[in-house]
Computed example of a mutant assay.
Amino acid sequence: MSGAAELTPTEYIQHHLKNLTVQVGEGGFWTLHLDTFITAVLMGLVIVFAFWLATRKATSGVPGKWQAFVEICLEFVDKQARDTYHGPSKLVTPIAITLFFWILMMNLLKMIPADFIAKPLELVGVHYWKPVPTADVNATLGMSISVFFLMLFFAIRSKGLGGFTKEFLTAPFGKWMVPFNLILNIVEWLSKPISLAMRLFGNMFGGEIVFLLIWVLGGAGILGALAGGAFGLGWMLFHLLVIPLQAFIFMMLSIVYLSLSEDAH
């Protein structure tokens, strides 16, 4: 089950889109996508290590090249967070930095051809490995649900539990329209994390399928290889924009949602 030569194009794409899973709990109550979990943790550790390298020899005078690059990136995210969020919390910038750079690192794995990761793993008996965590809806939903709970935390801290509950039941139509207010607010609050997750997942998953289609085209003779190389280069250059853009959009929408959760209706 390893190569495009042994599989039809459809089977090849399906093979690379299948997660490595493990059943957890009695009777397989919970299915863990092991490849998504391991890769996401590794990418988080990579970015932490990269930032640690910049701070390990940080100087207040003339910074080194890596330190200067990291400072520029952090200042960019910090400026975006400060311009978007006007509340009192000091947690927003760290949240924005974590979301942007973690998602960026996970998205960047899309630039590595699928077989470059799958082939070495097959040699050690791992036949399924979906390399891009953000192409797995479980990962994007996990991050968006975390943002959802942060929204609740920010709202309750700002308004108090009583004030938040009162606003949830009476806004925007007043106290005599509680059922309609409740339905509208539930839909509004739930739609935010779902839209966050599905936007990132849809873009990354769709891009993954196109990359696999191009990779299959490369195995269809000399003309197919030339066409695959040309299309692959064009799609890769396009994704050099899409990859950071999707991380930026997820970060910015998260900050906007946190800011809105503190606003009174």
Rank of each mutant, 00 (worst) to 15 (best):
K166W: 09
E122C: 01
G228A: 15
V70D: 07
G64R: 00
K18N: 09
P88F: 03
G87L: 11
F168S: 05
Q23M: 13
V70W: 14
V178Q: 08
P172M: 05
L196S: 06
E167H: 00
V216R: 15
M177Q: 04
M204Q: 15
L190C: 05
S158V: 02
G142R: 07
L150D: 01
H239P: 00
N107E: 12
G163V: 10
V124H: 04
V46R: 08
K90T: 14
G228Y: 14
G229I: 12
D263I: 09
F211I: 02
L253I: 03
I243Q: 05
V46K: 05
F211W: 03
L150T: 08
H16Q: 08
S158P: 04
L196A: 04
M111C: 04
G234E: 09
I249K: 08
L108M: 14
G44A: 14
N185W: 02
T165N: 04
M43I: 00
N107D: 11
L253H: 06
I214M: 05
S191A: 13
I95K: 00
Y257W: 13
I103Y: 11
K18W: 01
G160I: 07
V124L: 10
K79G: 11
L141M: 15
M151H: 06
T36W: 08
G234K: 12
G27F: 10
P63N: 00
E262L: 02
E262Y: 06
K18T: 14
L258F: 08
H86P: 03
I97H: 07
L200Y: 09
I249L: 13
A54Q: 02
A139M: 12
N138I: 09
R199M: 07
P113A: 14
M252V: 09
H15G: 10
T93K: 13
